[in-house]
Design a protein around this nucleic acid. Structure first.
Lengths: 211, 211
DNA sequence: GTCTATAGGTAGATAGAC
DNA sequence: GTCTATCTACCTATAGAC
């Protein structure tokens, strides 16, 4: 088990799990390296700093998800003359769930990391994401705009940010929420179930008429 | 009314601003006491520990907001036989905006603190909030449940947490969002305007039929 | 109540042997 | 590339003078 993967990968695997569970600032390099069973100094040798390790963890997912997501949206576009909002949001579910092949629990890990990334770290990660994956993000915004042409661009801007907040906060607290739902409502949910619950919510919110 | 130059109040004022901006774990007692221009040791003298300071910061807002919110909901209830979701959410706007009298930017600060409290600190603050203000929360949940009786309780649970995420994230990024809206769409918004935009969004999401 | 001084711990990062 | 050992910085918390 010890040398099953190279050190760099072992660090990434341990770090993403701990970052997703506990957040970035609550996860020390000592904790990461002890879980990964590698030496403390190897993080700085392979990644330079903790900040760059965080970016590397996110990039490993974004590099897979972002192209897959914009491709799924473009495929959707060719099938339907006018895709509904639910169809657009739903077309992201495939690329999201495919992340489970990258890593066990990959979907949940990725979304939690994304949430932490937007909330923690004074916007550094926000900038990293929009600057490195801006083209894919635009594909998405354009598809949404076309699907609800009656909504003014300014309202779409606001509502997509409301949506980002919904998803990001939900994913950051997903573990706690699933636990409460299990205790209070005897519901056994996984991350796919939570995604299925949130899609009607955000679709209705973005499409609602009137101020 | 507490003395503005009282050490305890100075600590609370500095702490809430920094906690809201940077998060709890990213804010050291040294930073708080230097901004408050008080001695480092005074935090432990007045509050015992950092953890209790965090609770005190939140409590100062919750003690004002929670009773005002549940009273507003009960007043609403007497006026309307069956309040709509938009009416229920709108009845919270008054109590929320009144927090600006407590402190400049009180509304935004409170909502940011609430978001941090739910995401950081491994559920300690979540427990604190639900155990100390559970009765007021129940008033709210009950009003929502009655206004959409066709929605199962478990779905209401999920959708109210989606809503919490929407509001909290939006408030956390409110400055950046209002700036972008001004530049890109020539819109001049304040916090009250953002709240008016978010109410239709969350109302539609909570009320949407179907899974 | 407020201060100085410091204890006692943990963080990220690095030098240098191997 | 990997290790040990260590540096520097910062953290929360407290003891004790005033």
């Amino acid at each position: 088990m010890a040398n099953r993967f190279d050190t760099k990968t072992r660090i990434l695997d341990a770090a993403e799990r701990l970052f997703a569970e506990r957040g970035f600032s609550e996860t020390s390099l000592r904790l990461i390296t002890s879980k990964a069973e590698v030496n403390l100094a190897s993080v700085n040798y392979h990644f330079g700093s903790k900040k760059e390790l965080i970016r590397a963890v996110l990039a490993r997912y974004l590099d897979v998800f972002m192209p897959a997501a914009s491709q799924a949206i473009n495929t959707q576009r060719k099938l339907e003359q006018q895709a509904t909002l639910e169809q657009i949001f739903s077309s992201l579910v495939g690329p999201l769930l495919k992340l489970n092949q990258l890593c066990p629990d990959g979907t949940r890990t990725f979304l939690q990391l994304l949430g932490r990334g937007y909330i923690e770290s004074q916007g550094h990660l926000r900038w990293f994401i929009t600057s490195h994956y801006g083209e894919h993000l635009q594909t998405f915004v354009r598809a949404v705009t076309e699907s609800v042409p009656e909504i003014p661009a300014a309202d779409i801007f606001w509502r997509l940010h409301f949506t980002l907040g919904t998803v990001v906060f939900t994913m950051a607290s997903a573990d706690a929420l699933m636990e409460i739902a299990a205790a209070d409502f005897a519901e056994q949910n996984d991350i796919a179930a939570v995604i299925r619950k949130v899609i009607p919510y955000i679709s209705a919110g973005v499409a609602v008429s009137g101020k």
